[in-house]
């Protein structure tokens, strides 16, 4: 049985049988991989306490031909993103990222760029002052990396540039002023600001991340649009997104100090 080693981020864990876990990882070279971790729920498990959602580590595993699940042999931690876990919004945001990756990526297909994107975004989430721009940039970049990016540079129907644009989930991109009238239902208005931020999110250089600003109204418009689009792609509601929304409404108002990323 061949033994493999790879960097990995834990995306999800499901309790299995008495003390085992089925863990889904994101790896650079083989993308999304699900594996059986025997005894992972025991306190003195050989995996240590680190086989937890959103930990980054080195995964050692067996992969038997014809089996769907890999066999997790070892997982050594590199980053636990502790600060992220210790904040309700950041923790929920991290889990939301994991849900998007889980929903969008196929199994066992190399995804080195998506891996880097998730790793960097988790790090930004625990360090950054504002979490909302970080989430929007991730959502936009993940669409491009996974091949599901909508067309936003010009009209999907005629290639034209006549503003104001609308956005059609069904057509997979923006629709110009002229084509809007002939396109049936489901076209929502989209502002210039949204399209400008979209472009910016894709072009942004690493060192400029901290300086990105996203004004509240624009953020809400972008957030709604992306949520709508992801829901269409996944064919279901994004549960962690709904939970984040609930936290914003229910919790943010309870404390005097403003919670990060609740604008």
């Amino acid at each position: 049985m061949p033994l493999y080693s790879s960097e990995a981020i834990v995306l999800r864990k499901i309790d299995y049988r008495d003390a085992d876990r089925i863990v889904t990882f994101l790896t650079p070279d083989r993308g999304k991989l699900a594996g059986l971790a025997r005894g992972a729920r025991r306190l003195k498990s050989r995996f240590g306490p680190y086989l937890e959602t959103l930990t980054h580590g080195t995964l050692i595993y067996y992969d038997r031909e014809g089996k769907n699940l890999i066999h997790v042999n070892h997982f050594d931690i590199l980053h636990s993103f502790r600060k992220l876990r210790e904040d309700l919004f950041r923790s929920a945001s991290g889990q939301y990222l994991a849900e998007l990756v889980l929903g969008l990526l196929p199994e066992r297909e190399a995804a080195p760029e998506t891996f880097q994107l998730l790793l960097q975004t988790l790090d930004r989430l625990q360090k950054g002052v504002e979490t909302e721009p970080i989430l929007r940039i991730f959502e936009i970049r993940l669409l491009v990396l996974s091949g599901f990016a909508p067309r936003v540079e010009s009209c999907v129907r005629c290639g034209g540039q006549a503003a104001p644009f609308g956005f059609s989930v069904e057509q997979g991109g923006v629709v110009c002023r002229d084509c809007r009238s002939s396109t049936v239902a489901g076209v929502r208005p989209v502002s210039r600001g949204v399209l400008r931020f979209w472009e910016q999110a894709l072009a942004l250089k690493e060192e400029r991340f901290d300086r990105v600003r996203l004004e509240g109204k624009l953020n809400r418009e972008l957030r709604d649009l992306l949520h709508h689009y992801y829901r269409h792609l996944l064919g279901r509601e994004i549960r962690s997104f709904v939970f984040l929304e609930r936290l914003r409404k229910e919790i943010a108002g309870l404390t005097p100090q403003r919670e990060n990323g609740t604008q």
Binding site: T53, L88, L247
Partner: peptide
């Protein structure tokens, strides 16, 4: 539990109770 879910639950409850 000191898992990501258990921690989130504790933080959430702490907010509700404090309020």
């Amino acid at each position: 539990n000191p898992t990501i879910e258990g921690e989130a639950t504790a933080m959430y409850l702490a907010r509700l109770i404090h309020a």
